[in-house]
């Protein structure tokens, strides 16, 4: 079995995480932003898998199950909210959500 050093594994997770973060920052479509957040969450899950494998513990894998469950709950509420946004604004572009901002006189 080829063993990959922990640093390289963490590097992979970090790259995934950054891809997600950049996605959230540059995408203006709420659905794509939610997908990018999912990538970030899964990158975090990968880190826990790496930790679990490194320390020979089940804790990391248990945490991944929790992350998956939580991500599903978050997406369920998120998609419901996005549906409502589409209903009210006829678009899912975040730049069209601009009613709330500082109005200084």
């Amino acid at each position: 079995m080829i063993s990959v050093p922990v640093h390289v594994q963490l590097l992979l997770a970090s790259i995934l995480f950054l891809i997600g973060l950049v996605g959230v920052l540059i995408r203006r479509n709420v659905i794509f932003m939610l997908m990018s957040v999912e990538i970030m969450l899964n990158a975090a899950g990968l880190v826990f898998i790496i930790g679990g494998a490194h320390w020979h513990q089940a804790d990391g894998q248990a945490m991944v199950i929790f992350i998956l469950a939580m991500a599903a709950a978050e997406v369920a509420v998120g998609l419901a909210l996005i549906l409502q946004v589409f209903h009210l604004h006829k678009t899912v572009d975040v730049d069209c959500l601009e009613e709330l901002k500082d109005t200084q006189s």
């Binding site: 922990v6 963490l10 997770a13 995480f17 970030m40 969450l41 990158a43 975090a44 899950g45 880190v47 826990f48 790496i50 930790g51 490194h54 804790d59 990391g60 945490m63 992350i67």
Partner: peptide, 9 residues
């Protein structure tokens, strides 16, 4: 979560 993961590793 990513931070917690790194601390765990």
């Amino acid at each position: 979560l990513f931070g917690i993961g790194l601390m765990y590793v």
